[in-house]
Design a binder for these strands. Structure first.
Lengths: 117, 117
DNA sequence: TGTATTGTGTACTACATGATACACGCTCGT
DNA sequence: ACGAGCGTGTATCATGTAGTACACAATACA
């Protein structure tokens, strides 16, 4: 269940092939955490870090923050804010969409994006 | 900013008009918290309770859990689960809908509910 | 009038989260 | 060969969350 740590380690080591600045220690320093902590995170010995730390890590490893947040099982705080502003409305919507297949939801996304809403 | 506590107190005292079993102490006992704690919650001296306690309180006061959860500024865990299952998809959707007016989102909800999705 | 019940103040607590601090032994490059 | 840099183990901590425990004064009521 620790896809997060494994993903981070893989990605970091991939970058390291061509750039020796991607050692665990140096990455830890650049994102502002202790090396021992990042070590534990990568091995899944501890839970994924906070949202802020995950975002800094994502930037450092040049991956989409959303991807890393998803692997960590976190819902990003801007989405939470979006829901909190209109909880009943978005609650209703999400429960309606919960059981629909991806393609149906995607169709909706495109419709909204392209349409004259 | 404590609409939660105020709402709970108002609702409880309304029920109490016709049923003396809605004293703070008795409600506290039925939902399984200390009276002093419920007192602090109602007066906004402390933050709203956990989701579980909020739901028990909602049942006791016969209001929709979603309403109380919304007043507490909490996003209910079943919605979080829904997003967590397909984070990129729902993330994209919510960001698309974030700035649309209520009626547009509602139209979407109805379209999905009534349509042949 | 007294006792049963009520709401509240003060003090404390258990547990989770998100880390830090530092020592240790290994390994890689010069 | 040896020192710089590496990853990791152990111990510890600060803050937040979600409450409990209990005494107390006011009130209601029979």
């Amino acid at each position: 269940m620790d896809s997060f740590g494994a993903f981070v380690r893989d990605r970091r080591e991939a970058l390291r092939q061509t750039d020796r600045r991607y050692s665990l220690r140096q990455v830890a320093e650049r994102i502002g955490v202790e090396p021992s902590y990042l070590s534990k995170v990568e091995r899944g010995e501890v839970a994924p870090p906070s949202e802020e730390t995950i975002v800094r890590l994502a930037r450092e490893l040049d991956v989409l923050p959303d991807v890393l947040l998803a692997l960590a099982g976190k819902v990003s705080s801007d989405l939470l804010d979006t829901i909190r502003k209109r909880p009943l409305l978005f609650g209703q919507l999400l429960r309606e969409l919960r059981d629909l297949p991806d393609h149906a939801v995607l169709r909706l996304v495109r419709e909204v994006r392209d349409g004259d809403w």
